[in-house]
Design a binder for these strands. Structure first.
Length: 294
DNA sequence: CAACCGTGGCA
DNA sequence: TTGCCAAGGTT
């Protein structure tokens, strides 16, 4: 295996965070839940919600039996609530296509709703111990720095990223899966975007970036994403009203969240188009069966 | 393929 | 205080 992977894995052996979805017998479904929740959302915010979900819906069939609106409500404030709907759709697909199990083949994983290149390989590696290049933003940053001597990676994962990371992994399956977890952990804990802790890094004497001075990038690595005043903020405010309501709400209850009627209507329309909100006569609610007393 | 999709915390 | 960032996926 590459020196980079062996050094990182040795460091991981002594420094891995004790995250609940890393427990050996945790099962593929809880791992899949964690991967959905961790898409663009920090670990500390995922932890409590993940525990709730695993306790409430211990198998894909349990979630599939619920209304998708319950998934959206239980998603809470994790952000990007379309992920909740996709995870619900994913659970349904697992029941319909795979007997309620998480499949063990990459093509089957990639065909699931909300599962892309990263999530598919992450689940196969971490839940089943398979050998796949698991390339997320952390791994791409570690590779950009340690291998290429660059301060940060490009905007998106490329096929070259997968090829490179695959070449770094040990041949044995379980060792490769552990190396993948280690590379991610290094990027998440030490080799961070803004304030890397190179002194503590197992690659400090080998890292191409550090050897060349470890200059941080001048500007932002990604395109800056605004939030205040955007449709996303309005969508979030509208959905928060519905999450806290026990049933459908009337239009005035939604109108109070944002002053501009044009943007408010646009946001509501987009939520309806996404299926995150459904019309109930003159009211609006989360998707699901209508309570009998309404 | 660039844009879009939430939310909160920290430097 | 505020801009940047966080285990991406879809269109």
């Amino acid at each position: 295996m590459s020196e980079l992977a062996s050094l990182t894995t040795a460091w991981y052996d002594n420094n891995a965070r004790d995250l609940p979805w890393r427990q050996p017998e945790i099962g593929a479904w809880p791992v899949l839940i964690s991967e959905f929740m961790l898409q663009q959302t920090p670990v500390v915010r995922v932890l409590p919600v993940w525990r709730e979900w695993v306790a409430r819906w211990p198998a894909p069939a349990d979630l599939a039996a619920e209304d998708s609106g319950e998934a959206i409500r239980a998603w809470g404030r994790l952000g990007y609530p379309r992920r909740a709907m996709r995870l619900h759709a994913c659970a349904t697909a697992l029941v319909e296509r795979h007997g309620g199990e998480v499949p063990r083949r990459l093509d089957q994983m990639l065909a699931l709703p909300g599962v892309g290149d990263y999530t598919a390989r992450a689940v196969l590696a971490f839940a089943y111990g398979q050998r796949h290049p698991v390339v997320d933003t952390n791994v791409r940053r570690v590779a950009a720095r340690a291998v290429h001597g660059l301060p940060d990676a490009g905007a998106a994962t490329t096929p070259a990223d997968l090829t490179l990371v695959e070449s770094l992994l040990p041949q044995a399956e379980s060792a490769a899966a552990r190396a993948s977890a280690a590379l991610m952990e290094l990027g998440a804990v030490l080799c961070t975007a803004r304030t890397p802790r190179c002194e503590a890094c197992p690659l400090r004497d080998r890292c191409a970036w550090r050897r060349s001075g470890a200059a941080l990038p001048a500007g932002p690595s990604r395109k800056p994403q605004r939030y205040a005043g955007t449709d996303r903020q309005v969508r979030g405010l509208l959905l928060a009203v519905l999450r806290h309501a026990s049933g459908p709400v009337d239009k005035p209850s939604l109108d109070v969240v944002w002053p501009d009627p044009v943007q408010r209507e646009r946001a509501l329309d987009s939520l309806l188009a996404d299926g995150l909100v459904v019309p109930r006569g003159q009211r609006f609610g989360l998707p699901g069966r209508v309570p009998a007393d309404i």
